[in-house]
Design a protein around this nucleic acid. Structure first.
Ligand SMILES: [Mn+2]
Ligand SMILES: [Mn+2]
Ligand SMILES: [Mn+2]
Ligand SMILES: [Mn+2]
Lengths: 217, 217
DNA sequence: AACTTTTTTTAGGATAGACTAAAAATTAAT
DNA sequence: ATTAATTTTTAGTCTATCCTAAAAAAAGTT
């Protein structure tokens, strides 16, 4: 296993490759490599039994590939917790360093780091940290976009694109914060949130897809 | 710069390449690669102006190469401090993980980690941590082998080969510990040390080359 | 159904790194 | 001074990863 293969498998997973066929096009866009390189990498991973390949359609992860993806994500997210909690990174800064460190971490290192961090369950974006064996703890949260006017909720997880995190930082939206959804405009209009302390925040319709919340009874 | 090049330059430095010519043979032994691969890497580094090459003799680091070596050693040693102090590694365990992490560390990460660790001066083996700009703080210690019978000293630095560190762990020799050199046998014989608490430790002649001490007046 | 656009694959190359085997140069030993 | 042993270099391959350009297949449009 090499860093490139690991990142490739992780990309397939993040594009839904556990359940759906992921197209070469998507991987070209995500990894910023040529279409030819994607075809090549597919061939390699197929030979190693990490993916199933449907010619001219795309790829799906095998059980083996899925385990590798989740173990890499475990490393990535544990490093993110370290960077955020111990080194004072903001949540929009952690991604690129964790993306390198994840490939330079022995299993022993990760386990010791995990203990040092107090065996966290979530990364700084609310992403759940997979178990050592590659399995994933069950989580129970709803996309904000599916909420109806009037409900109360708590922020549980957000998309980890750097620009989106900067946007949330600007909007003062962070994990654990509680709001009431006071308004949601039709025709893909904006959402108005009101925090427990009374400030109102307006966020765009598309942002509401990238925020997962837990409803408060 | 790639991990391989970095490690190669570091190896040249550790073999004395700042001042002496380092032979291909030495690099073959240190890096466990073929002689042909050493010649090849020499050609590459020469082209980049990181080394001076004397055909059929060996290589010396240029200023540029030296800076890269010291900056890599800085990263390596800062990681070693982290592994030992925060994750509970013994001093014989830190090397291999630090050897990977050093290549996956942005400058920003290292500076933040350095601050988190309290800007340490030495690594767990007493090796001095180079400055950010690649310069090296002056240090003042003597090889134990050069000490004479009767002197008192404090352990300042030890060779960082894994087996040697295990040996020292077994002999209960650690950084900062103070001893009196009660006996040193002629004909490359053993040395007898007596700690302040009274225990006597006998160590081999060759081990005394790998231990640096500071004399206590 | 035929034409156009998009996507995937193939073909042909490039670079970094590492290997073995053979040739050339240097050093050591008669 | 030869010969022998060691070390370095060259030549020829290999794998992983990336690329561009062209061909083939699939999807979209009239
Ligand atoms: Mn990565
Ligand atoms: Mn994350
Ligand atoms: Mn290294
Ligand atoms: Mn060290």
């Amino acid at each position: 296993m090499t860093p490139n293969k690991e990142d490739f498998i992780k990309a397939i997973f993040e594009l839904g490759g556990q359940t759906q066929v992921v197209t070469n096009k998507d991987l070209v866009r995500t990894l910023s490599i040529s279409a030819a390189s994607v075809t090549e990498m597919n061939t390699r991973l197929l030979k190693e039994g990490l993916i199933t390949h449907l010619p001219y359609q795309g790829v799906i992860l095998t059980e083996k590939g899925l385990t590798i993806a989740n173990q890499l994500i475990r490393k990535h997210r544990i490093w993110e917790v370290f960077l955020a909690e111990k080194l004072g990174y903001d949540w929009n800064e952690v991604h690129s360093d964790a993306d390198l460190l994840e490939h330079a971490s022995s299993d022993l290192l990760i386990e010791r780091l995990n203990i040092f961090l107090g065996e966290p369950t979530f990364d700084p974006h609310g992403g759940v940290i997979p178990n050592k064996d590659g399995s994933i703890p069950e989580i129970h949260s709803t996309p904000l976009i599916e909420c109806t006017k009037g409900v109360q909720f708590k922020i549980k997880e957000v998309d980890d694109q750097e620009e989106f995190l900067e946007y949330l930082l600007y909007k003062k939206v962070h994990l654990g914060k509680e709001y009431t959804l006071v308004d949601i405009e039709p025709y893909d209009g904006p959402l108005t949130l009101k925090s427990t302390s009374g400030e109102e925040t307006i966020i765009g319709h598309k942002a509401a897809f990238k925020i997962l919340v837990e409803l408060i009874d």
